[in-house]
């Protein structure tokens, strides 16, 4: 049996008496690159927030790295790149180095200092996303695609085993989207980081992911991307309410 690092059983979440998520049974195996797709308002972001402990489910259980969520403490094992990464305060006077360092804050703790070893880690993460030349630039002066890379560097600097990304390509131009998927591929293959990527981009998903999950209040599909592509486009059209093309999403 594959090593499962995230699993949920009978997960249900309601907001103002409307069910957002109903009876979700979900498993994420170590080493996979999972795409989480589904229509707007289908509960993708809510699901992610529950896994990250930002929202409390109404019922159901969550296991992270084999531990019940209530007992899970080692949050540095999980890196997160949020949707908000493209709406942050662009006037914030921080350098790329300072922003990526923030990814180590919780791991270092309160009374320990930022050492040369930490500095090396930060520079390596910046290097990994191909932004070495920009380490001392102000984060607000970079392009959307470059900022996105910096937020990935911040997420991976603590050497997480799982990286969760919530629609990270929104607001990033096409050319950078290609480089972005290349980077995810490297993180997954060369560094063995398990990926959970929320996206609208079903085309890219079928090309890059090892697993696809389709979520619209309940789980509609959980399996191989090829299968997903083959499977009844009609079903998905019904789900979305309009015909679906496996094309890259235009922004």
């Amino acid at each position: 049996m594959a090593d499962t690092i995230v699993s949920t059983t009978s997960l249900t979440y309601a907001y103002e008496r409307k069910n957002i998520l109903t009876d979700i049974h979900f498993e994420l195996a170590r080493g996979s690159f999972m795409g989480l797709v589904g229509p707007n308002g289908g509960g993708k972001t809510t699901f992610i927030k529950i896994i990250l402990g930002l929202l409390q489910p109404d019922s159901g259980t969550i296991y992270l790295f084999g531990q019940p969520m209530q007992q899970f403490k080692d949050w540095s094992k999980i890196g997160f790149v949020s949707q908000k990464a493209n709406t942050f305060n662009k006037g914030f006077p921080a350098t790329v180095f300072e922003v990526v360092s923030m990814g180590l804050t919780a791991k270092i703790g309160y009374f320990k200092r930022f050492t040369a070893k930490h500095k090396e880690k930060v520079l390596r993460a910046i290097d990994q996303v191909g932004m070495r030349d920009y380490a001392n630039e102000n984060i607000g002066h970079l392009s959307g695609g470059q900022q996105q890379r910096i937020f990935i560097a911040r997420a991976i600097v603590s050497s997480p085993e799982l990286l969760i990304l919530d629609e990270p390509t929104v607001g990033v131009d096409q050319e950078n989207v290609q480089r972005f998927y290349q980077l995810l591929h490297e993180l997954n293959h060369e560094h063995g980081i398990t990926l959970l990527l929320v996206t609208h981009d079903t085309g890219a998903m079928t090309r890059h992911a090892t697993d696809v999950v389709c979520l619209n209040e309940t789980l509609h599909f959980h399996g191989d991307p090829k299968e997903y592509e083959k499977q009844t486009k009609q079903d998905l059209s019904d789900l979305y309410g309009h015909p679906i093309n496996s094309l890259t999403h235009e922004h």
């Binding site: 930002l54 403490k73 949050w75 999980i78 908000k84 914030f92 923030m102 804050t105 309160y110 930022f114």
Partner: peptide, 22 residues
């Protein structure tokens, strides 16, 4: 001095700070 890292992390991006366990 003691809480500099936590203060700047929280000021820059509260959601990220919370997720990372601050």
């Amino acid at each position: 001095l003691v809480f500099y890292k936590q203060l700047i992390t929280l000021s820059f991006d509260e959601e990220h700070a919370v997720v990372s366990g601050i």
